[in-house]
Nucleic acid binder design. Structure first.
Lengths: 116, 116
DNA sequence: CCGTCTATGATTAGTCC
DNA sequence: GGGACTAATCATAGACG
């Protein structure tokens, strides 16, 4: 059959209304995000952890992590951070709480790194 | 002055050797990754947390989180996980540990994976 | 839901400031 | 380090199976 697609259209970055379309977009963008992350890992030897909660009723969880989500997250939440250069503008209060010892579970988190 | 750039060149996804180039690439890709994440949040109402550790000696930490890294990470590590659809292939052992009650809060966590 | 296709929008390597 | 630019590559909206 004749292809009728006129190619990609511009999409405004606002919450989508169409549910089924949104599901497709969510899948595609999630895959793209994880791919970008893995490229950044490979190209620059960075260590990345990503956790994604899908919206709506089917609140599924997807994750990407190199070397592992848990390891990186523990290091993030732990205390021996070499330096915090935080682009996250939303959780200053929570971070302050955490840093003051709220967690009380983190002990020594091995720091292993290098290439990949 | 006359622009001599011949535009973007194809880049193989392997670890970069040039350190200063890598620094630039790291910054650009990190910004792109966070932007993609925020778009996914807005478009689909997803909740995303990202933690990035920069490579090399200056092991800085960058994070993105909506609503917040801590909240999402706690939910990820915590108890009321609705479902785990994990794309992370590297941490089966750690996950198994966690799921077997190391943190003492996990009950039933579905494990399914594959793809990506 | 997943995979494929293609035109086109989005990202970015290389460059200069 | 950051910002701007351009041209090329890359990602993906929408349509279809």
């Amino acid at each position: 059959m004749a292809r009728l697609s006129r190619g990609r259209k511009k999409v405004e970055i606002v919450k989508m209304k169409n549910e089924s379309n949104m599901q497709v977009t969510f899948s595609k963008h999630r895959a793209g995000l994880f791919k970008k992350a893995s490229e950044l890992c490979t190209l620059c030897g960075a260590e990345i952890a990503i956790v994604v909660f899908s919206p709506g009723k089917a609140n599924k969880v997807y994750s990407f992590g190199h070397p592992s989500v848990e390891l990186l997250v523990d290091r993030f939440l732990g205390r021996d951070l070499p330096l915090r250069n935080d682009d996250d503008r939303h959780n200053h209060l929570i971070r302050a709480q955490r840093n003051s010892g709220q967690r009380g579970l983190n002990k020594e988190v091995m720091d292993m790194q290098e290439s990949f």
